[in-house]
Structure formats: C-alpha cells, structure tokens
C-alpha cells in the first residue's frame, strides 16, 4: 500500500474527475428520462458500479428513444 501512497495523485485526478462527470451526467439523465429499456434501478447500479463502461452502455442501449 505504501507504493500507492507515493503515486502522484495530481496526475490521476483529471481521469477520476472525467469519469465522475460521465457518471453524474448519466445518472442525471436516468432520473429525468421518462422510460428506459429495462428497470431504472438496474441501470443506476450499472452506471455506478461499472466504471466508464456503465455510463456508456446506458447511453447506447438504456435510453428509450420512442
């Protein structure tokens, strides 16, 4: 664990921030959209726990467009 503490977090921060924004955008959209393909709570779990892939999969197949 010591090695992890030595890592320059300043460098990694932007990556974490961008992923967080992506997750927040997806969650906000999930709350506001009227219907999804499949239950909303499942999508919430997918977005939160599947890092990067979760929000993207939600945007591609989760949003109902008709």
């Amino acid at each position: 664990m010591e090695e992890l503490a030595n890592i320059n977090w300043g460098l990694i921060a932007p990556l974490i921030v961008v992923q967080a924004i992506l997750m927040i955008v997806a969650l906000t959209d999930l709350v506001r959209i009227h219907a999804t393909n499949g239950p909303k709570w499942v999508w919430a779990l997918v977005i939160i726990f599947a890092n990067l892939v979760g929000p993207v999969i939600y945007f591609i197949v989760g949003r109902k467009s008709s």
Binding site: V18, L22, L52
Partner: peptide
C-alpha cells in the same frame, strides 16, 4: 457530452 468524455478517458 458523453461521447467526447469517453474519448477523453
């Protein structure tokens, strides 16, 4: 919004 963010990551 999301596609540029994905490409940035």
């Amino acid at each position: 919004v999301w596609m540029p963010l994905l490409f940035i990551v």
